[in-house]
Design a protein around this nucleic acid. Structure first.
Lengths: 216, 216
DNA sequence: CACCAATCGCAACTGTTGTAGCTTTAATGT
DNA sequence: ACATTAAAGCTACAACAGTTGCGATTGGTG
């Protein structure tokens, strides 16, 4: 085992302290106000150490992002695509609106816009989320609520995109109605057959697409 | 007149030089590499002057954004909503993909995430763009290609959102097919009646909604 | 138990960013 | 032309992010 060589030693303690301090600084000062020195001071770890192991603010954030990828996501399963999709979009919205986790989540988006490493980490993080959320669409196809041949990942993207657009591009407020309309719009597009995959199969992800049994 | 006190004087020359240098630095170094000193050096204006009048990097970008709001936009008018909407989304995409203007446009998005002033400036900039693009939807309603009672601004938002989402959130590549699918999805949602305005009238903007003559 | 490699802490140093006080320039009005 | 005054230029400096070399500590290993 490489990473478990010294599981509970000083290095591990230092790592945890720095990670926690990174999240705290991110929540408190935001991405713009965050600094390596601040994280070092808050964590009690010397700044030289932080510079050596994490290299920069981007490194700290990338590390935190890779951690966050672990946590699962309470994907809804109501029996109705409409409700499920609305639930997924609402989950995204509250994730950013929540006073505790919101600033950190927003900081991840900001960081990814300015650091290639963070961008890669965020892309993989979101790809994992998309794959989880896509189950909602696959279940709908199996239930014959939606035609087969749908690109499930694209449905998710189209559903959540307007919320991100409002939050991070136009900086408009996002109402509950906006959330519902975004989900419903993606659903309508899917029903109209606009969001088909290239191969005519229901696409969820590489693994799932070989498992899926097209019914239509 | 307050701002026109010395229209062609030294202050005006300084202002223009700094604005031009801001755009050049933004295009060259990007948002992350941009610095007030760099702009000052490139413009030939002393750095204290730039600090006094623009305060910070965000101030420089906000000023540039307010300038950019002036330029009009070649909204397509093909006689088909489908083509028009696709054209609008393609316009957005190329605006960011273009090697010359792309970095500057991207920097605006980035700056707005870290500066409240820049966020306000960007919101107003995009609101103006949305209003311009919404004509495409209004024409479609008049042509009876779409039912009346549609929130035209929301159609535009839903149409462009997936492109922004890919560009600035997931950092995935954006293909021509992605552009078309985004536009088509918004159109399908509009046809399905998902993107209705609250009052049941076709909404374009405050001014236009009083001018518009609902036909359906 | 003693050794060795890895990691962390420390203090001093460098370069850059942003600020303050004062002087000089140039646009406007008489 | 000339006085007035707002704005730009200049020097010096304070604050801070990031780097480096070296010594101290930790934890695995024979």
């Amino acid at each position: 085992m490489e990473s478990l060589k010294r599981p509970g030693g000083r290095s591990a303690r230092v790592r945890d302290a720095v990670r926690q301090a990174t999240l705290a600084e991110l929540a408190g000062r935001g991405y713009g106000g965050m600094t390596v020195e601040g994280v070092a001071a808050r964590s009690g770890v010397h700044k030289t150490t932080v510079y050596r192991r994490w290299r920069s603010v981007e490194g700290l954030i990338t590390d935190a992002l890779e951690l966050a990828r672990e946590e699962p996501w309470p994907i809804p399963d109501t029996g109705s695509v409409r409700e499920d999709l609305r639930g997924v979009v609402a989950l995204v919205h509250t994730g950013f609106a929540d006073p505790s986790g919101g600033p950190v989540a927003s900081a991840f988006i900001t960081a990814a816009m300015q650091s290639a490493d963070a961008a890669v980490a965020l892309r993989e993080f979101l790809a994992a989320r998309h794959r989880q959320a896509a189950v909602v669409v696959r279940r709908a196809v199996e239930r014959r609520e939606l035609p087969s041949g749908i690109d499930a990942l694209e449905v998710i993207r189209v559903a959540v995109a307007p919320v991100y657009y409002r939050l991070f591009v136009t900086h408009e407020p996002v109402s509950a109605q906006d959330v519902e309309r975004a989900a419903d719009a993606a659903l309508a597009a899917a029903r109209a057959g606009v969001l088909r995959g290239d191969d005519g199969e229901t696409v969820v992800d590489q693994a799932a697409s070989t498992r899926s049994t097209p019914l239509g």
